[in-house]
Amino acid sequence: MFTTEPLRIVAVAAGLSSPSSTRLLADRLAAATRERLETEQDRAVEVRVIELRDLAVDIAGNLVSGFPSATLEEAIGAVTEADGLIAVTPVFTASYSGLFKSFFDLVENTALTGKPVVVAATGGTARHSLVLEHAMRPLFAYLRAVTLPTSVYAASEDWGSSGDEYTEGLPARIRRAGGELARAVTGGAAVSGASKALGLDDEVIPFERQLAGLRPA
């Protein structure tokens, strides 16, 4: 039986088409997080997905006038008050979409302080996967959020793929990211979550000792 107030998980999806792979990825990440929280931690969860395509006119109006509509203000409030955030964008011109950036331009730069965030993106080819590292992580670092270790990129060929002996398939990456977010919103440290995900020991071996082990006797 669930205890305490529900945890609020908000996913922001910046896909332009309907339906879109961006919305699909947001839904799957939210479902993975919900499953871990409900089945493993016995917590009630409220999930909300905000589709930015529905707010495009409101976002443009706010950028021009400086005043948000009631609908946009409510959406920004849901993001800033969430216990955990999932942010998913399609890749346009080797970066996040303009709509995605415009929405987060309207979020106060201290409003996400300490909030755990999973970043994810979709694109036609795996060549754009570094957008997660060179664009999305710096954006949320500026907003003072805690970006979780596992980010998820889904290229067209990833859907329905189970991976191979060298790489995890998309479903495994979604489950891992959902597990990290579930731990973070219930008080698990993001660093400790990263260590478990990467299979690291608690002991940190100094770099000098690692180098010494490579020198010939």
Rank of each mutant, 00 (worst) to 15 (best):
V47D: 03
P149G: 12
V119D: 01
L130I: 09
R144F: 00
S95V: 01
R23I: 15
A135V: 10
A111W: 00
G77A: 04
A31Y: 10
P90E: 06
L37K: 12
N109L: 06
Q41F: 14
L25F: 09
T39E: 11
L63E: 13
A82C: 13
K115P: 08
E51K: 04
P138S: 11
R127V: 07
S129W: 09
E73R: 13
E38M: 13
T33V: 05
E81R: 15
D42R: 08
I59C: 05
L55K: 08
D42G: 08
S17R: 14
G61T: 08
E38V: 06
V88G: 03
A14P: 09
K101F: 00
F104R: 00
E40T: 03
L143Y: 01
F92K: 01
R23E: 15
L139C: 09
T33I: 06
L106T: 00
H128I: 03
A30G: 04
T147N: 13
L130C: 12
I59S: 03
L52C: 02
T39K: 10
E40R: 08
R34A: 12
P149M: 12
T93Y: 12
L72P: 06
P68F: 06
T33N: 09
E40Q: 11
G61L: 08
I86Y: 04
A111N: 06
R144A: 01
A82K: 04
D83E: 09
Y142M: 08
V47I: 05
A111R: 03
K101S: 00
A31Q: 13
E74D: 13
V119K: 01
T71E: 15
N62S: 07
L132S: 03
G61V: 04
E51F: 06
A26N: 14
A126L: 09
L24F: 13
